[in-house]
């Protein structure tokens, strides 16, 4: 089996508090996987373990393995891992002192790329992939924070795509957006899986149903069930999953 990214018996702590326990899950290449579950179930923590961002929180700790192309990312340099595994956050967080252009170019610039032509190409390509190019091509010099909320989030997606990652993690990318902006991002996610392996955390079950082939359900730090999205929503195997998707809790 060729899974692009896999977690193997991953547990994570904040201080002494265990956030997720013993999670094993695989993500197919060129597919979109959704992770759903009530707030506090550890779904964000799980994807933050996948790009080793969890350990940057004070007193946070991870155990287990995360395999990218079969190689444990916890035995690699975290910086190199994060270059291959991009991330989009819950709330759009463009760099406040940078223009639209500089935001997208940030990853390359910060890693020492200075060739203006190469940067121009990457910025244009990334913005196109993030379906933002047409809206901002005349205002690349404006501050990134001057865009609307939905545009800011797509700017952040373009920023994450610029270093050409193989995997894109999205942590509730639409939770702060209105329905129209959300629809745009969902379309975008649909297109992105042609080139990337996408993992999206969402508390919105409809969204998972719309964008993902595979869906995982988490509850209280445990992975309860993983399956094809239709399967999981129509014929859940676990009673916990069933009560959640029928709205009995959460």
């Amino acid at each position: 089996m060729t899974s692009k990214l896999a977690a193997d018996k991953v547990s994570a702590w904040y201080g002494t508090k265990k956030a997720i326990e013993d999670i094993s899950i695989e993500f197919e290449e060129h597919s979109t996987s959704a992770i759903i579950g009530p707030s506090g179930c550890g779904k964000s923590t799980l994807i933050r373990c996948l790009n080793r961002l969890h350990e940057t929180v004070p007193k946070a700790r991870v155990e287990g393995h995360v395999l990218l192309d079969g190689k444990d990312v916890y035995e690699d340099d975290p910086v190199a891992v994060r270059r291959r595994v991009g991330m989009v956050f819950q709330k759009a967080n463009p760099f406040p002192t940078m223009s639209v252009y500089d935001n997208v170019a940030a990853a390359l610039r910060l890693n020492g790329v200075r060739d203006r032509k190469a940067l121009d190409g990457v910025v244009k390509r990334s913005l196109e992939k993030a379906a933002l190019w047409d809206e901002v091509k005349d205002s690349l010099g404006k501050p990134g924070v001057s865009l609307s909320g939905g545009q800011q989030q797509r700017l952040c997606i373009a920023r994450a795509l610029a270093p050409e990652p193989e995997v894109l993690l999205m942590d509730e990318p639409c939770s702060a957006l209105d329905p129209i902006a959300t629809a745009k991002i969902e379309d975008l996610i649909f297109d992105l899986k042609k080139d990337y392996t996408v993992v999206i955390v969402t508390h919105n079950m409809q969204q998972a149903a719309r964008v993902a082939e595979t869906t995982a359900f988490m509850y209280l730090g445990h992975l309860i069930e993983v399956g094809a999205t239709r399967e999981l929503f129509e014929r859940p195997k676990e009673t916990l999953t069933e009560s959640y998707i029928t709205g009995r809790f959460g």
Binding site: N51, R82, M87, N111
Partner: peptide, 20 residues
């Protein structure tokens, strides 16, 4: 969130601090 965004781009922490 600004620090995390930069870290998630695969930028070493000292450059995140100095440049962002």
């Amino acid at each position: 969130s600004i620090r995390e965004a930069a870290l998630a781009l695969g930028v070493p922490k000292y450059r995140v601090t100095l440049r962002v």
